[in-house]
Simulated assay, not measured.
Amino acid sequence: MKFLDHLEEWFIAFLMGAATLVIFVAVVHRYLSGLAIPGLQDWLITLNTSWAQELTIYMFVWMAKFGAAYGVRTGIHVGVDVLINRLNTPWRNKFVIFGLLAGATFTGIVGTLGASFVWELSHTSSTSEVLELPMWMVYSAVPLGSYLMCFRFLQVTWAFIKTGDLPKHDHSHVEGLEEEIHGAKA
């Protein structure tokens, strides 16, 4: 279960690294193709990197869906709680639980509608324009990201019911740094 605790970070980090590499290769290819170097220029022009833009767009869509789940888990997801925080504790807690369960319900519905759409799409021959990927693979980001976000809402709700605490993102905290500092002192 420890792996699930950081699923979003690993997946987003992988996609960011891969997207950076793909864009870097495409830019270098484009630049070098413009140089009048006999043989090299001819060879580079035969290589097609038009797929790079489409692939990175799809990667960013996946990053956005999984990033939203990360935001719920860590407490950095957008929320308007100015009025709720002014309520007395029992009422505040009820509204917080209602809001979290509403988020879980909404993302569960979006996940289910997305899964239905992906299922229907998987029975067609629809493919992406350049990469010619089956479109159901591209749109799978919607149900997978939404279900993960629903799961994270339920996790936060359960933790709030047990402890009364919501995840708070500390911008000054760097995870793993304490262990490194303590290891250096030892």
Rank of each mutant, 00 (worst) to 15 (best):
124 T>V: 05
88 N>W: 12
83 L>K: 05
56 T>K: 08
14 F>P: 02
63 M>S: 03
112 T>F: 10
79 G>V: 14
47 L>M: 13
140 S>Y: 09
12 I>N: 02
70 Y>H: 11
156 V>A: 00
26 A>Y: 10
141 A>V: 06
164 G>P: 11
142 V>G: 00
146 S>H: 03
169 H>A: 13
19 A>R: 10
47 L>K: 11
6 H>C: 00
38 P>D: 10
165 D>S: 11
76 I>V: 03
166 L>Q: 12
113 L>C: 12
102 A>C: 07
71 G>S: 12
93 N>G: 09
6 H>T: 04
109 I>P: 03
173 H>K: 07
159 A>R: 15
75 G>T: 07
48 N>D: 15
171 H>Y: 13
169 H>S: 13
14 F>R: 03
182 H>T: 14
123 H>K: 03
67 G>H: 06
43 W>Q: 13
135 M>H: 09
180 E>Q: 12
124 T>I: 06
3 F>W: 11
6 H>N: 05
156 V>N: 01
95 F>E: 08
138 V>Q: 02
177 L>V: 15
104 A>Q: 06
108 G>R: 04
45 I>G: 01
104 A>Y: 03
57 I>Q: 14
147 Y>G: 07
128 S>C: 04
65 K>Y: 08
132 E>V: 07
39 G>S: 13
119 W>T: 14
161 I>A: 01
24 F>V: 11
109 I>F: 10
91 W>L: 15
135 M>Q: 12
94 K>P: 06
87 L>W: 09
32 L>P: 00
16 M>R: 08
73 R>E: 13
101 L>F: 03
76 I>D: 04
32 L>I: 08
70 Y>C: 04
150 C>F: 04
163 T>H: 05
118 V>G: 01
126 S>T: 14
3 F>D: 09
57 I>Y: 13
24 F>L: 11
109 I>C: 01
141 A>G: 02
76 I>P: 00
16 M>E: 09
51 W>G: 00
6 H>M: 00
69 A>T: 10
131 L>A: 09
37 I>E: 09
17 G>R: 07
175 E>F: 02
58 Y>R: 12
65 K>L: 05
136 W>F: 14
84 I>R: 06
99 G>F: 00
45 I>A: 06
168 K>N: 09
132 E>D: 02
59 M>H: 01
79 G>D: 14
38 P>A: 13
